[in-house]
């Protein structure tokens, strides 16, 4: 699981903002706003990782309930996939 190249993530006005660049900007128009968890996962999946690794990483980062984290990560990955952001 890896997010396609061609996006940049920056914090603007305290909010996590993703915009497409280069070739990606021709096919994807617009901007993505992410919460803290979303930004964490976006950065994590900018490198190749499994969903399981993301769940482990998020659990150790936030000391959250594993079942809840699994649901969150699966939902995030589903949104990424449906929007064609994954390689």
């Amino acid at each position: 699981m890896k997010i396609k190249s061609g996006f940049v993530l920056r914090v603007v006005g305290g909010e996590n903002v993703v915009v497409p660049v280069g070739e990606m900007s021709k096919t994807f128009h617009g901007m993505i706003n992410l919460n803290e968890t979303g930004a964490f996962l976006w950065r994590f999946f900018s490198e190749e990782h499994t969903v399981e690794e993301a769940i482990d990483a998020l659990c150790s980062e936030y000391e959250a309930d594993r079942e809840q984290v699994e649901a969150d990560v699966n939902r995030f990955v589903d949104v990424l996939t449906r929007n064609g952001f994954c390689e």
Binding site: V8, V19, P20, V21, G22, S25, K26, M31
Partner: peptide
């Protein structure tokens, strides 16, 4: 927002 990465 420019499409070129550095300027974006």
């Amino acid at each position: 927002i420019p499409s070129e990465e550095k300027n974006a």
